[in-house]
């Protein structure tokens, strides 16, 4: 069988087209939003002319910049910690031989997913005040880590399930320590799961409004808090401008990591 034919058999017709369609669906509103960040007027849906004025507004607005940086720092930290915790939990819950307690752990780990945000928000506020943890970045971070865990745990678990267990154990036989086997064999195999989990945790943390709004303390503002607060006086293309800058930052990061990966391969 020729390689060309093999490739052909592995592709199902229409799948590529659907994936591109999926990307178009995801990006259509984003293109619209980016376009209006260059609008001259105050409207976010009526075009009046091209201008950079809203970017100037963002660059002059210390509060919105601080909020954006805070959001990114919190999302990176919360997603990373949640992914590490979820990795441990996934290893412990998948492949366990005894059945007892497995469901319990599974339910606890997915529990944060099941409570509506506003309820978690109010409950966390009452709880933090009751136990005397003063509101601020610590409480935001704690709350974010907790609701990020299921988003990191489920993709990692999906990756681990049915992963060929003979591989790590064969490796464990070969290497001096199981730790080494884990780092050399299991972890690389887990990378797609870890990456998926981390990305989902990251975007869910970056997006969160209600919980953050109620557990944030004085001086601790994130981008969603800033944006929701603006609504009463009306949305302006300033929101589009900061969103576009976030998109630019993410794209730059992706390109950078791509370049680094390429450079790494050359060596």
């Amino acid at each position: 069988m020729s390689t060309a034919r093999m490739r052909d058999l592995r592709t199902f017709s229409g799948f590529g087209l659907l994936s591109v369609g999926c990307a178009v669906f995801l990006y259509a509103p984003i293109v619209f939003l980016t376009l209006y960040s260059f609008n001259d007027g105050r409207s976010v849906s009526q075009w009046t002319g091209f201008s950079f004025r809203w970017y100037q507004t963002v660059f002059a607005n210390q509060n919105i910049q601080t909020a954006a940086v805070n959001s990114l720092l919190i999302a990176v930290t919360a997603a990373t910690i949640a992914t590490v915790l979820a990795l441990g939990a996934a290893i412990a819950t998948v492949n366990r031989r005894s059945k007892s307690g497995g469901e319990g752990a599974y339910v606890v780990l997915t529990f944060p997913l099941m409570v509506p945000e506003i309820v978690t928000a109010v409950a966390s506020l009452v709880f933090f005040v009751a136990v005397g943890i003063s509101l601020g970045f610590v409480t935001i971070l704690l709350a974010h880590i907790v609701f990020c865990i299921p988003f990191a745990y489920l993709p990692i678990k999906a990756r681990l399930e049915g992963m060929d267990e003979t591989l790590p154990s064969a490796a464990a036989d070969l290497y001096a320590s199981p730790a080494k086997a884990f780092v050399r064999i299991t972890l690389p195999l887990l990378v797609p799961g870890l990456l998926s989990g981390w990305l989902l945790a990251f975007i869910i943390s970056l997006d969160d409004f209600i919980i953050t709004a109620l557990v944030a303390g004085p001086g601790a503002t994130t981008l969603p808090l800033h944006i929701y607060g603006m609504l009463r006086l009306g949305m302006t293309p300033e929101v589009n401008a900061i969103s576009t800058l976030m998109l630019a930052a993410s794209t730059a990061l992706v390109l950078l990591s791509g370049l680094l990966g390429q450079a790494g391969r050359k060596h």
């Binding site: 509103p29 990305l199 981008l223 969103s243 998109l247 993410s250």
Partner: peptide, 28 residues
């Protein structure tokens, strides 16, 4: 390489806040 690029491609729009994304979808 393309796999990782696709993964990021799927998640990049989510760097924009859900509220803003939803409003943008409404406008579309």
């Amino acid at each position: 390489r393309a796999k990782n690029i696709w993964l990021f491609l799927i998640t990049i729009p989510y760097w924009v806040n859900l509220l803003i994304r939803t409003i943008a979808l409404l406008f579309v």
